[in-house]
Computed example of a mutant assay.
Amino acid sequence: MNVQKDKYAQIIKTQAKNLGFDFCGVAKAEFLKEEAPKLEDWLNKNHHGEMAYMANHFDKRLDPTLLVEGAKTVISLIYNYYPEKRLPDSPENLKIAKYAYGEDYHFVIKEKLKTLLTNLRTEIGEFGGRAFVDSAPVMERQWAQKSGLGWQGKNSLLLNRQMGSFFFLAELIIDLEVTPDPPMIKDYCGTCTKCVDACPTDAIVQAGVVDGSKCISYFTIELKDQIPNEMKGKFENWVFGCDICQDVCPWNSFSKPHQEAKFAPHPDLKTMGNKDWQELTEETFNKVFQKSAIKRTKFQGLLRNINFNLS
């Protein structure tokens, strides 16, 4: 029987590589008992701020069999988004997180996952399963670590020894038994605290724990109200998301540019200076960010973030 499960693992990894995924790891679908008290503590401390959805589906976050009936395996996948060139050139210009330079990853990667599922069913035969890209209560970093793809850094992001952290995580939860990979036990951050020291809002409250309600990404994307005045001058020109804790991480010296044409920035985005940001119209917003994750803030939300940084 193990020969069959090994064969499935090999097929899955080959098909994932063919679709451009950099890494693919396999874990047994089971209740994440070690994570339950951590998640409960994080929620009790209100580290999710106004992200009420984080408190929903507590059990589903911890038990993949509640997401896919009869789930046996969680497949974790890594997809690179590190750009060839950082935007903008000038340090005083406003900035957006690198993951949002191109088309919205939710759609780009979801398409790849659908293709992956189809290809696997063609090669293996019919089985049940679902694809997830940051779109359901799946604890993706924990599953990726369980499948040996990396460890959680002090900034809580998954770190991979070959490519750092500038990548998307995605999952397939399936009802097929597949040989699991050994989990990543070792933490390769050591005594380094660069991410903790660099965070201008002190959002990293302890190793591996981020107070989401203090994070620049939270303020610029999730928060719908006005940004608190005490945050004035702390955003370092970020108007959508923030890459500070990743930019300073030594493991990201291993980042290589992605090969995904859909993640290339819109031509107009490459030349946007602060004057362009300040004079941004809804028409330009809809044109430049038509397919971007930045649409999540909506035009008024992005204007709020621009004015907060520049006023």
Rank of each mutant, 00 (worst) to 15 (best):
R161M: 12
I78R: 06
A36K: 02
H258C: 07
H106A: 06
R61P: 01
T281C: 07
A261G: 05
K110A: 14
L310F: 06
G164D: 01
D89N: 02
I124A: 13
I227F: 14
H47W: 05
L117S: 12
G212V: 08
N2F: 06
N56Y: 15
V239N: 04
H57I: 06
L66W: 07
Q4I: 15
Q142V: 00
A131S: 10
L303S: 07
Q15C: 13
G49P: 05
S90Q: 10
T271I: 04
M51Y: 02
K95G: 06
I11S: 10
V138M: 00
Y105W: 00
V26G: 00
Q4C: 08
R296M: 07
Q4S: 13
V210E: 11
F240D: 02
A55T: 12
L157V: 02
L113K: 13
L117H: 15
A261R: 15
L19W: 05
Q145D: 07
H57L: 10
W238T: 02
P257F: 09
D175S: 12
Y101H: 00
I185K: 06
L66H: 09
L310S: 13
V209G: 11
N155L: 02
R304D: 04
D243P: 03
D104C: 03
N18K: 15
F235E: 04
D187A: 06
L19R: 07
G20L: 08
K17P: 05
L117F: 14
T122Y: 10
Q278S: 14
D197W: 02
G212I: 11
D41M: 09
Q290E: 12
V74G: 05
R61Q: 09
G125H: 14
V248D: 05
H258Y: 13
V133D: 08
G164S: 06
E50V: 14
L280K: 06
E282G: 08
G102H: 07
D211S: 09
Y99K: 11
I96K: 08
I12L: 02
H57F: 09
L302K: 03
E111A: 13
I96C: 12
T14F: 09
S253I: 03
K186R: 12
I124E: 13
S311D: 14
M51V: 11
P83F: 07
A27C: 08
G129A: 10
V133G: 11
R161F: 06
K98Q: 14
Y218Q: 13
R161Y: 14
F285W: 05
N160A: 04
F127E: 10
A16K: 03
W151D: 01
K291R: 07
N18A: 14
Q259V: 11
E222L: 11
G25K: 00
L269P: 08
F219K: 14
L94T: 06
E92R: 08
L67C: 01
